[in-house]
Amino acid sequence: MKKISILAILLTPLLSPAYAETPEEKGLAIAVEADTRDTGWTDQFADMSMLLKNKQGDSSERVMNITTLEVPADGDKSLITFDNPKDIKGTAFLSHTHSLTPDDQWLYLPALKRVKRISSSNKSGPFVGSEYAYEDLSSQEVEKYKYKWLRDETIDGRDCFVIERYPQYEHSGYTRQIVWLDKEMYQPLKLEFFDRKNSQLKTLQFLNYKQYLDQYWRPGGMQMINHQNGKSTMLTWTNYKFKNGLSDRDFDKNTLKRAR
């Protein structure tokens, strides 16, 4: 099935002028275009902080940095290193994502100096106690979803495609997501998540986009609100750096052991 969808991706640009597009074809074509426009950044570094808030207003902070390697024709590789809370400082998480097979993931525990291969099935679980699930933060490959264009809509004065997408991963925590994709940037402005019972779970808003290297748009902030438990997580991105000359070597188990 997934092979067919890849074939569809390849053929869509050739076939699309020949016949009227269905909403599914239009949705997929937009996703492919967004993916194409965000290709070629090679590698990326960024600092990331998360402010976790509960209903009572208590807050807790997570600080980490994340490096990502673009892998053509497969999922990206990423390395997340934690700095705060201090009891998990130096803990690092290496992920080789794949579009068609399960991801490879390792965790480095600095107190024991132990590298642990971990199950990558846990995509729906909370990431470090936040309102983000692992799958919300992992590399967004086209093949991970099926798509359906719903309508065009203007939010906050910006023209958007509104697309519904359906996770193809069997252990996903969501039945569907609705994306508001900015027509100029081809980047999401808003995402709504629907849980396994198909009720609205979370809303994610992307803030303060900036363009890097005259091509790549990246948000400065991402506000996730959980409607069911009243908690929220504000994620702030800083210090984006692209094309740092990284290679596979910077995303192997040896590098994981000395991540900082």
């Binding site: 099935s121 846990n122 729906s124 679980g125 909370p126 925590g173």
Partner: peptide
């Protein structure tokens, strides 16, 4: 073996 999100909670 890990049971993820037991009984519709965040617990593993």
């Amino acid at each position: 073996y890990t049971f993820i999100g037991i009984m519709d909670t965040a617990l593993d």
